[in-house]
Amino acid sequence: MVLPAAVFTAALFLLPVGILLSEGFKVGGEWTLAGYADFFSKPLNRTVFFRTLKLGLLVALVSAIVGYASAFCIVNLEPKQRGRIFGLVILPLMISPVARTYAWIVILGRTGIVNDAIVGLGLSDTPIRFLFTETAVFLGLLQLFMPLMIISLISSMENLPKDVIPAARVLGASWLQVFTRVILPLTREGLVLGGTLVFTGALTAYITPAILGGSKVLMLETLLYQKVNVSNDFVSAGIIATILIVMCFGANVVLRRIAKA
């Protein structure tokens, strides 16, 4: 009974992806790592690689900080209200990322709200460029993936044993100590799960860097698209694909280790 599903996925999915990845190790028909050496010798590629890593980590980190604050507040609401707010948190996940990202053009564009405010308040004579900056990509990614973090933190906070927080308070813990010594260790799994989802999501997002970063702020995904569509460079495409997959799996493995330690 599982066979159709497994065969379907393997044939349509694992096999072609496997071949694609192998392309990065072949230059001129020979198995070699030369492609990788060549790839990383180019400053642009290096910049894009580190930018992707940096943005992924940053989005995960900020999601975690904001996520903890809001998850904690949401969990402490009355059940009825909590359900409603929870619904609002997951709502964005159901809406087209194109629509979600497009909103940022309206907000950050030359004639967008932020620039209208800046010019209107006389903070600057000319509109400031926000689009096609790392900030714009960061904001877009954060908005796109933060719900995943909040959801997984909420579910692990709901599983906190009863009364451990007041117990810590009565034993003399400040709110910061309650967080670091009780909440954090007890919600580590939720944090790791959320962190993995957000980090890999940010690494592999295409729409956000494409719309908000353009060719000025390339990330690995948009770089891959360029390599294929502009320069037909399938060696680089295979390499980028491999890097992305390794980073995603790496994040999975490393974070799972941390969760269990």
Partner: peptide, 13 residues
């Protein structure tokens, strides 16, 4: 003030 909770509220970790 010391408080022993009905659920004991021990720290499971």
């Amino acid at each position: 003030v010391g408080l022993v909770f009905q659920s004991y509220a021990l720290f499971p970790h």
